[in-house]
Nucleic acid binder design. Sequence first.
DNA 1: GCCGAAGCTGAGCGGCCGCTTAGAGTGCCT
DNA 2: AGGCACTCTAAGCGGCCGCTCAGCTTCGGC
Lengths: 207, 207
Amino acid sequence: MSTAEETTGGEVEPWEEVTPEAARRLLVAAVEAFAERGYHATTTRDIAGRAGMSPAALYIHYKTKEELLHRISRIGHDRALDILRTAARREGGAPERLADAVSSFVRWHAGRRTTARVVQYELDALGPDARAEILDLRRQVDGEVRGIIQEGVESGEFDVLDVHGTTLAVLSLCIDVARWFNVDGPRTPEEVGALYADLVLRMVGAK
Amino acid sequence: MSTAEETTGGEVEPWEEVTPEAARRLLVAAVEAFAERGYHATTTRDIAGRAGMSPAALYIHYKTKEELLHRISRIGHDRALDILRTAARREGGAPERLADAVSSFVRWHAGRRTTARVVQYELDALGPDARAEILDLRRQVDGEVRGIIQEGVESGEFDVLDVHGTTLAVLSLCIDVARWFNVDGPRTPEEVGALYADLVLRMVGAK
DNA sequence: GCCGAAGCTGAGCGGCCGCTTAGAGTGCCT
DNA sequence: AGGCACTCTAAGCGGCCGCTCAGCTTCGGC
């Protein structure tokens, strides 16, 4: 397979960029806890406990519990945007690029489900400033997908009446994977990615 | 327009069945608060305040805060299932019934967005028993949509490889409307319903 | 007129919350 | 060796949480 996610190059571990190691452990613990129970139902004692530390240790690396969510959300959105940009800018026609974008994006939502859940569903828990920053990233995400669809329409490869509405639906379909995907379920992230790429090509009336 | 939602007959107000009036006011207040902030971030004082009552009044009508969520979730799922059943059982071919199901279901998620948000995203806040009861209703929801798609495939009206996967995607698309739909946005529930019905017919390869 | 049932409030209980502080342990620089 | 910066813990503070309870009001039945 040759798709956006694999061809980005240097990518190894998701939270590599978070240092020192104790801060990363806390952040990974927070991702798991937020994904399982939601931000508001998660206590700082729970996060610290999962990271094998005392509750006070959290505040050496993060000012508040909300800063943890902000860091997670920012890194997650950066990664999601990176995946879509790579697919949008590769060689090939609009159908190939859209299929690549959807299958990569879906694989990320399924394979990194805990992260994606926090990223997509805990936005409202952020304060106004952090929220605005993340919303700007979301507009860029929307723009990447809309760009591919728009190009496909202009080149005659797609048949779409409402480009904005269809873009919304395509992204919505991908994002909701984070809600229902079950790691122990019958489908692998790759299978869902392939199925969804096919469904999306149908939605845009790809020739 | 003649679709499932209108032809159900007696339906008037959504929470009519909740009595006495004070209990209904509390429940409506809880729906709003849960939808805005999430179940865990909502306090019983907030719910009672929105209903114009003291915090203690809540416990005359409901044993716990969770019972409020359970009642909301149960009634909401019953309504959603009712909408889909009506569409699935009307006369007409599979394409007409699927389009009706999707547009009605989407209109409900958009028009009753606060309720739908609570119903679809706060399931995890329920205890094991209530959760199991709701999951059973969700399986019935899934069954209704899968039934229409299956019939369309068998009659040759649809062209679908993975019936289960496609059913999942169709429902997922509709449900996610409750996440992004904005009452002040540019689209009406009716417009989104019509757009989504068209997109879904494309997904199932309707002739 | 009296009574019991039902609806509601003000006050508050025990407990957990996010977060802080004082101080101990550890390793690097000189 | 001494000093300092960094990391972490034990203890706990003030506050809000879900929920309870004693008592007040209202109202229909007789």
